[in-house]
Amino acid sequence: MQEILTSLLNVVGLAWWVEVKTETPRCTYYFGPFPKANLAEISKAGYVADLEQEGAQGIAVSVKRCKPAKLTVSDDLGEKLSQGVPTALTRPVV
Rank of each mutant, 00 (worst) to 15 (best):
Q53C: 11
Q53W: 09
K36V: 14
A40G: 01
K67Q: 13
V85I: 14
V63E: 01
K67H: 11
V11N: 03
K36G: 02
Q53N: 14
G84A: 06
V73F: 07
I4N: 15
F31S: 08
F34W: 02
P35V: 01
P33E: 12
V11K: 14
K44W: 04
S82L: 10
C66T: 11
L14K: 11
V18H: 02
I42G: 01
E23S: 14
A69N: 04
L71M: 15
K70Q: 10
G84L: 05
K44Y: 05
Y29M: 05
L89P: 09
V61H: 09
G13F: 12
W16G: 03
V48M: 01
Q53Y: 08
T22I: 05
T87D: 06
F34V: 05
E23Q: 14
P68D: 12
S7Q: 15
F34C: 02
S62R: 15
Y30I: 02
E19R: 14
K21M: 05
Q53L: 14
L81I: 12
P86A: 13
A88G: 10
P33K: 12
F34P: 02
A15R: 06
E3Y: 15
P33Y: 03
G78H: 04
A56S: 11
E41Y: 12
F34A: 03
A45L: 13
F31E: 12
K67N: 11
P35N: 07
L39Y: 04
V73S: 06
A56Q: 04
P86E: 10
V12C: 08
G55D: 08
N38F: 15
P35Q: 13
C27W: 03
N10F: 04
R26G: 01
K21Y: 02
V93C: 01
K44V: 08
A56E: 08
K21H: 07
Y47V: 14
I42W: 08
S62V: 15
T28V: 15
P35D: 12
K64N: 08
V18M: 02
E79V: 02
G32A: 11
Q2K: 13
T72D: 00
Y30L: 00
V85K: 08
K80Q: 13
D75P: 00
R65M: 08
I59V: 04
V73G: 00
V85Q: 08
C27F: 05
K80R: 15
M1P: 06
V61N: 08
K67F: 05
V20T: 15
E41I: 14
K80D: 07
A69M: 07
V61P: 06
C66G: 01
R65G: 06
A40Q: 00
Y30R: 06
L5S: 06
A88R: 12
A49H: 05
Q53R: 15
A88W: 05
G55P: 06
S7P: 00
P33L: 10
L14Y: 01
I42A: 09
W16V: 07
P33M: 11
T6G: 03
T90P: 00
